[in-house]
């Protein structure tokens, strides 16, 4: 019963954080566009939050540049569980046209685990909404588990994060 309530709440109150790890702006303005009158995602309970600590879903755009990598990982670490990551746009999915560059690591999933990919260059706001809706529909809180479980990042990821912790000061920016 309680788990049903929690599941209901999580599906209806996804607060998102947006991070551009090296994209061209196209996806970013489409994400910002979600908030504006034509799309108005507040209808679905989606709020764009400013601090990683307040967010449930990380919307990532752009391929990951070498300079962005640590920051992206740190933002992910700062988010409280349960959390989800959505790669918005072709670049975030695979690196897109920028594959092969000396400063590129590829898609978001090279750095943090991704729950949903939304390809498109850039994806239309409708498509982003559709993607988010599908992600929300998969959120469930099984009856036999306590409501606070998080998708464990792969072991290898954890290791590299641990290596980072020396310099990360968690100042929330």
């Amino acid at each position: 019963m309680l788990n049903r309530l929690v599941q209901w709440a999580r599906r209806r109150s996804p607060w998102v954080l947006h991070y551009n790890s090296g994209g061209c702006n196209g996806c970013d303005i489409e994400i910002l566009d979600l908030l504006t009158p034509r799309y108005d995602v507040e209808r679905l309970g989606i709020l764009k939050e400013a601090s990683p600590r307040h967010a449930d879903i990380l919307l990532c755009t752009g391929p990951v540049t070498r300079q962005s990598r640590d920051r992206l990982r740190r933002i992910y670490e700062q988010m409280p569980a349960p959390k989800w990551v959505v790669a918005v746009g072709t670049c975030a999915t695979s690196g897109g046209v920028f594959r092969g560059s000396y400063n590129m690591l590829g898609g978001i999933d090279q750095v943090i685990p991704v729950d949903l990919y939304i390809p498109g260059c850039p994806p239309r706001p409708e498509v982003i909404i559709e993607g988010l809706a599908r992600l929300l529909a998969t959120i469930d809180v099984p009856e036999d588990k306590p409501p606070r479980d998080a998708a464990e990042p792969p072991a290898e990821q954890l290791k590299s994060v641990a290596a980072d912790e020396g310099e990360a000061s968690d100042d929330g920016d």
Binding site: T65, R66, Q67, G100, S101, Y102, N103
Partner: peptide, 22 residues
């Protein structure tokens, strides 16, 4: 413009610098 961990002595726009070697 380049990342902090860029290996020194390899300016990326020199022709002899292979494009992917980073």
């Amino acid at each position: 413009l380049l990342p902090e961990d860029w290996r020194p002595g390899r300016p990326p726009l020199r022709k002899k610098q292979p494009p992917k070697e980073n």
